[in-house]
Amino acid sequence: MKVVYNNLIMGIKVNDIQVADLTKSFGNTKAISDVFFNISPASITGFLGPNGAGKSTTINILLGFIKAAHGIAKLSGDKVSCNNIKALKDVGFVASNPTLDNNLTVKQELKYFAKLTGKKIDQKQITSLSHKFKLDLKAKIDNLSNGNHQKVALLIALLGKPKILILDEPTNGLDPLVVAEFKRRLFDLRRTGTTVFISSHILSDIEDICDNFIFIRSGKIIAHKSKSDLKKLSPTIISLTSDHVSDIIFGIKSAYGDKATITVPEETKLQITLTDAINPLLKVLAKFTVSNLQITSESLQSIFMNYYKGTETPQEDDDIAQAHFALAEGKKALKSTKKDKK
């Protein structure tokens, strides 16, 4: 963490999106507080939290739409500010319910935004993108459905092949077919090296496409986990029937110690909850006659719900504590550098 923070200060490109210590208030309401995360290139990161958690505020700061009270945000190593257009050079953005110019046709809209990117974009790219998204270039924006409207917004974001794609609840109001297509496009983009940062308050919309998840609640980051880490957190529940319950319990205790929770609902029935690998258990069970074996896993959804409700005390806490320590250290280092210069 220290290294990351110091690199952030020194301007060394480490990650595509770097956010440190971001704080923003609206009047007396603190929208976000000490938000800290880094996102590595060519990944899809889900930014999750309930409504009003601070997702859009963070994104608006990332794009320079609003100013942070303090903290740093960098895109591809360039510090974000209201007027640093360099930071937005390789960024595509789709807002939740994006606004487009209803007076124009899809083609006119795309051509206009292509010019705004400041890159040479030929007609072929526009045609090929619209073909992929099955969009009629001659259709007037005003006459498009919600789904097609969103597709145009995504196309606008993709013009000029951005390195970073920031999406603020992009699947709002879209039907499942469009959502599925949308996800396919995001996968394609990641494959070609694009970093995708996608916010949502609906886990199921983005669960299957994200490599990493950042959870925000009440303006604070409460967890930053990879998908595999999250899966490890989800316990496996095994229920079975056997005449050798006491022997099985002994075997499980020897293999897992406290990592397994065992309940005996009936004399011959057993329910085991594991937060560790299942293989040792299978080895134990192989020695006995077992019937009605059922293995279920708690869904990611329930883990997310725990984060949402605030019942989880996450890693998070350790990692966050470390991040804050690193921040404090970074600040100290900065102050001492300034003093030395003086």
Binding site: L63, G64, F65, C82, N83, I85, K86, L88, K89, V91, G92, F93, A95, N97, P98, T99, L100, D101, F113, L116, T117, G118, A153, I156, A157
Partner: peptide, 16 residues
């Protein structure tokens, strides 16, 4: 008001 300004300023265009 409509948000169209944001769509445009998300591109590398300075506010000035």
């Amino acid at each position: 008001q409509s948000g169209l300004m944001l769509t445009q300023l998300a591109k590398p265009i300075s506010r000035k």
